[in-house]
């Protein structure tokens, strides 16, 4: 068998390095041979070879939809990639609670919200609610967490005020609506606000949502970001471990200063 070349990774259809890719897109063109040819040429412009428009549909009016196959000419050198990942050792509900009891010896306070105009609480509810998600209990169920879910459409100012009020260890923000990148500006505003309040070093700042990655979160000034597929235990374990790490760092610094 041919060996995979990590320096030149290409899409796989049924043969190594065949570069096969499927695309689906619409064009603002009346359905017909010209539209189909436009779709084919566009795929070539995108860097595909052996382009095949396998399906073309009239969307009515002046729009057409295409399913296209092509061979991708390009490749990626995987050996050069560096992806920031949330540093966490997997622990389940029981392990995390025990860990907090043994290593921290106090309850962790978390304040969470869907901020700005976002009314979609499905993500934050999955992580926070007593009932949890996918068979896992949410943070509200953890005896070693004091978890407060503020719900939907919470202004950043309110969230920060509540966090200060509760002396929160961590702030969780969920952003689902991403139209026109509203989540980016909203998350950035939160970071600015927290820095202005002078509490940035005192809280773990965590965001989550279907379009959130850890890399994006770091870029925006958060401590961590959780994307789709995140379970409550991931978030709980991260917060617990990171707080313990943080305490170690603080006590080490204090020892040095002494």
């Amino acid at each position: 068998m041919t060996k995979v070349d990590l320096k030149n990774i290409r899409p796989y259809g049924d043969t190594l390095d065949d570069g096969k890719v499927q695309l689906a897109f619409s064009l603002p063109l009346r359905y017909g041979p010209e539209a189909k040819e436009a779709a084919r040429q566009l795929a070539i412009e995108m860097g595909f070879e052996d382009v095949d428009v396998v399906s073309a549909h009239d969307l009515g009016g002046s729009f057409s939809f295409f399913v296209v196959y092509g061979k991708c000419k390009h490749s990626v050198d995987v050996t050069q990639l560096h992806i920031p990942k949330v540093e966490v050792e997997q622990m389940d509900y029981f392990q995390t609670n025990d860990f907090i009891r043994d290593k921290l010896g106090r309850k962790i306070t978390v304040v969470a919200a869907c901020t700005g105009s976002d009314a979609h609480t499905v993500g934050i509810d999955a992580i926070m609610n007593m009932k949890g998600y996918a068979g896992e209990p949410g943070l509200e169920r953890y005896p070693w967490f004091r978890a407060q879910n503020l719900g939907a459409q919470v202004p950043n100012e309110t969230l920060v005020a509540k966090a200060i009020d509760a002396d929160a260890d961590a702030i969780l923000v969920s952003q689902i609506v991403t139209q026109k990148n509203v989540h980016i500006s909203n998350l950035t505003r939160l970071v600015d606000l927290i820095e202005a309040e002078g509490i940035r070093d005192e809280v773990l700042l965590i965001c989550g949502g279907p379009r959130i990655s850890h890399e994006l979160a770091l870029e925006l000034g958060f401590d961590a970001g959780f994307g789709p597929g995140t379970l409550p235990s991931h978030v709980a374990a991260y917060i617990a471990q990171e707080l313990v790490r943080k305490e170690h760092r603080t006590s080490a610094r204090l020892a040095e200063e002494r």
């Binding site: 619409s26 549909h57 969307l59 939809f65």
Partner: peptide, 12 residues
């Protein structure tokens, strides 16, 4: 759903 508000062909 969960990706974006529908594109024209999503609806189609």
């Amino acid at each position: 759903e969960a990706v974006h508000t529908p594109h024209i062909h999503d609806r189609y």
